[in-house]
Design a protein around this nucleic acid. Structure first.
Lengths: 212, 212
DNA sequence: CCGCGACTGACACGACTGTTTCAGTGAGGC
DNA sequence: GCCTCACTGAAACAGTCGTGTCAGTCGCGG
């Protein structure tokens, strides 16, 4: 059995967590079983036993990374104000999470998985890119007024917000220029065609504190 | 000699071109000399002789891809109108290029190189991400009024435009949804805080013809 | 003709890949 | 005591990787 149950064994989750930390540092692209096993205090034999194959291991790691991401999305979803301007507030919260120093490794991993999933749709990362687009769009949609979130304009709007966030993220990951990218995001969010004419202040996230 | 002269031999450019086409199809991540050599009608021995090492080959391929990109940027730079609204016009032109079906492979390769350059700053792709950010920002800056392009607001603005373009590109590459992403880009460009109050029409690029 | 430089083929080297085979551990339930 | 089951170690498998070695084939200028 490949031990892919709904209730993974304690050892399996323990090793997955260690492997996840390892991958956050070293990336997925040239992941190799022997160095990984050595780093997490195990052996290739055990990893293969627990995850069935390297394919399975990578899928588990990707799922683990996505769990971190979905965790943020859920938290935003709870705190997220609906109604006009809600989209801007949520986007601002998301950006302050994306911009946080301690999430760089995760987000770099995210970009890596995204790229691989574009190039090689048969690998373990198959569908990863498309899945995350939908995840994020869904959260942004939840921040829009329920009465109009189904319109084409609202769809274009959340697509645009997602684009700004991810484009700025790419920039930030490459240059590390937090100030410039944050200014760009805030400027673009402030310029959003807000249907209710309700302009939220741009200063709320400048300092970078995530929680209220 | 590694044949890294300013005037590469005919055979070298010929093989580079063939390898470039191969890489556009198969990606850079798991590029291997033997399959590549077989595909381009050569041998690993020759590739190594001409490019010195795999490292050199990949660098040459990345430079080749960047040349394609800079080609676009130069063309846009020539046609680009300066003054207020020029940024929007240029961004619209760039998007219609990015969105074109025949550039998908190149842009996927671009994302791949970008991701690798983030993860592993010592590989052949070192500095690739940072370099492309600067390339694009420079072109967008050239489309801004010379008197104000040095201001922080102008910098934030072109950073924002770049973010929209690249974020929408990520979305497009993953979902293939040309309509939604294009609508988002046009909407976001139209919403730009245009300093002259000069709103350019959004309809000019809707059909998607690049050249005038 | 001769030699020189660009290019190429065949092959082997050592290192590394994911995966398998065989042989065990040790703890918990009967 | 014993049996089962989750887990583990050592070693080997067949394969691919980038690279190096030795040799050879062209065309072209002297």
């Amino acid at each position: 059995m490949t031990a892919e149950d709904a209730t993974p064994s304690a050892r399996k989750t323990e090793l997955l967590e260690a492997a996840y930390r390892y991958v956050l540092e070293h990336g997925l692209a040239d992941l190799s079983l022997r160095p990984l096993a050595a780093a997490v205090g195990s052996s290739p034999r055990v990893l293969l036993y627990l995850f069935g194959s390297k394919h399975g291991l990578v899928r588990a790691l990707l799922a683990r990374a996505r769990a971190d991401e979905l965790d943020l999305l859920d938290r935003v979803h709870d705190h997220g104000a609906e109604g006009p301007g809600g989209l801007v507030v949520v986007a601002g919260q998301v950006w302050s999470w994306l911009a946080a120093e301690e999430h760089r490794a995760l987000l770099t991993l995210w970009v890596e998985g995204y790229a691989r999933s574009l190039v090689d749709p048969d690998g373990p990362w198959a569908g990863f890119a498309r899945a995350t687009v939908q995840d994020w769009l869904a959260v942004l949609a939840a921040a829009q007024p329920p009465t109009e979130r189904h319109t084409a304009a609202a769809q274009a709007q959340r697509t645009a917000v997602l684009a700004v966030l991810r484009g700025a993220l790419l920039d930030l990951l490459a240059t590390g220029d937090l100030e410039r990218t944050t200014a760009a995001v805030h400027q673009q969010l402030a310029a959003l065609p807000s249907h209710g004419g309700h302009r939220p202040g741009t200063g709320h996230g400048q300092g970078g504190t995530t929680s209220p």
